[in-house]
Design a protein around this nucleic acid. Sequence first.
DNA 1: GCCCTCTTGTTCGAT
DNA 2: ACAAGAGGGC
Length: 731
Amino acid sequence: MDYLKGLNDRQKEAVLHGEGPLLILAGAGSGKTRVLTHRIAYLIEERGIFPGNILAITFTNKAANEMKERVAHLLDDNVEDIWMGTFHSVCVRILRRDIDKIGYERSFSIYDRDDQITLMKECIKELNLNKDMFNERSLLNVISSLKDKMTPPDSYINQNYGDYYYRNVGELYALYEKKLKQNNALDFDDLIIKTIELFNKSPQVLDYYQKKFKYIFVDEFQDTNKSQYELVRLLSQWYKNLCVVGDDDQSIYGWRGADITNILNFEKDFPNTKIIKLEQNYRSTKNILEVANHVIKNNYDRKDKRLWTENEKGQKVVVEGLSDSDEEAYFVVNKIGELMKEGYKPSDFAVLYRTNAQSRSFEEAFIKNNIPYKIVGGLRFYDRKEIKDIIAYLKLIQNPVDDISLKRIINVPRRGIGNATLEKLEEYAREDGESIYSVLFNIDEIPGLSARAKNSLMKFMNMINKFIAMKEVMGVRDFIEEVIYGVGYIKELEEDGSLEARTRLDNIKEFLSVAVDFEMRNPDGSLEDFLANISLLSDIDKTEDVDNSVTLLTVHSAKGLEFPVVFLVGMEEGLFPISRALESESELEEERRLCYVAITRAEKLLYITYAKLRTIYGSTNYTLPSRFIKEIPQDLVTSSVNRKGTNSGQLIRVIDYSSRERSGLETGYKSSVDNSEIKVGSKVNHKKWGLGTVVQTKDRDQDMELVIAFDKVGLKRLLLSIAPIEIVKGE
DNA sequence: GCCCTCTTGTTCGAT
DNA sequence: ACAAGAGGGC
């Protein structure tokens, strides 16, 4: 096996590097994944390293899986023993084994953002603080960064003793931590920090992992925070074979503690670091790369470098000003239509935006024109109420002291345990320092409960007990099914019978198939593993691999990905760069890096668009084109409607992608419904929106405009000729 | 204990 | 624009 075939000299050097710390400064598209996979394969095959002695930390689980596959492909060897995953999943794996050494149960729960908010609300209430003054979200952000810097609550309180607000932030932090512990729960930050704590408190455990991981790799190193850095520093202390890969120009997670000095100071912490720079880009055309270089060079705070490529010059980057977000969406749809005629397929395209809210107009335009698409992030399957409810049941069964989960579902479906009853339980539990579940065992000692409430509580407790016993002997999927039927969730939804209830049932079925999937991949997986697995998925991981569809995603989510054709949309001052960043030079530089990441996702074609009218929060405002557009030299860009030599948004003619042009777009779909068949009252089934009833029709040239009341999404106006609908024959 | 209406914040990005 | 949560009435 030749691991060096097709690699350039720098890449070869990285692959063949022997022992000791290695810092690879890898520009966008410079083939770093290739280097990583080849190096891992080389270590295993040529240097006789056991796969189990390698740890590779990636940014998403998807990246980990892909890397694993690629290594397996190079080796024809079993690579299952390589530890590959995100910081969080690796830490869970370590903690599940030994967290009891720092005073937690191994059945600990992982709290996501929603759980954290619920918990913080309790804290605010318990300290009798004004909830208008103390906002959960911002508190959690402050606390998260304190935890990342490993500042404990008491020292923070001492530092801020004179300040009412910050002292109380410290008190809330202390209480929040206490409650997490009581619930035997860890938040995302804890997964890292508690692993470090475990290593510090138990030298044997640290020693085991230090000697196990002879080679450690960290990808996207520019986006690691302080505690993650500390973690890999500890792990690599023995062998010092730490290889990190990163690019300071692509650091885009400063707001969640990513610390660029981790890269810049790496050499100081690891003496004798070998540094290799990968500056040849294999991804993009010369034009696209030039555009990227011109934008990023406006950043002051960066290591000087300049990516180059041997790729063809390619077409100029198109910059397009549209009148509003709908026109912007239709511009993209039309371009996709044109390019598909030239042979591009839907999966070649990505639409990148700054904020998730921008996805909507694109989604609508894609549906109307029957272009298959998938959205990364946004409306999330796992955020649906019914899914969260079921997960809460499972979390409670796995970890009965998890009060947050218990409170979520103790009365779902309704079983006559209301707030008043719950408060009495909580009160009693708090006095005893016990969990709610555990005080149910002493139900007769709890004051003020009615006989009816007691009865319901007993039933609830017995049910949970039964599940706790069953979980030991059942497979994950069967067990989940048992739970959702057993708790009466399905029954309630079936009796409801509304379309909403049916959708919820569908989602639950979908959840079961997630469990089936999990079981296939992890035949020995426990409920704990399953729950940890789903709570640590990134948006990218959660996005279904729908074949051949356009990808819609934020620039943040697009990190590490590449597409032949990229539409970078919403390039307006105040949106990208986002308004909050305008006042701070460092935040503005992060926005610029984000823009650089966006541009460098493109392989062949790049379209940059902005809308002159933008609606945010329901109010519409005039906008100015993003300063990043102005940083691109004129000779690298073009516009399909722009008159030559204009660079200000004012002079760009607005083209009217009015209904005629929109409906004339050929994307392959022809409505199967005839004019004569459809009338007010007709029941129809829409490809995306499901069942609906026609409530209005209006003739339009040779077409017909329909207003349809959809059961799921409400009123929609669409054109018969292009709407993907079919008539549902009467019952 | 449950349901309805009104208010509020949400959307910068995410494990 | 819209959903979620609070608060009041039954």
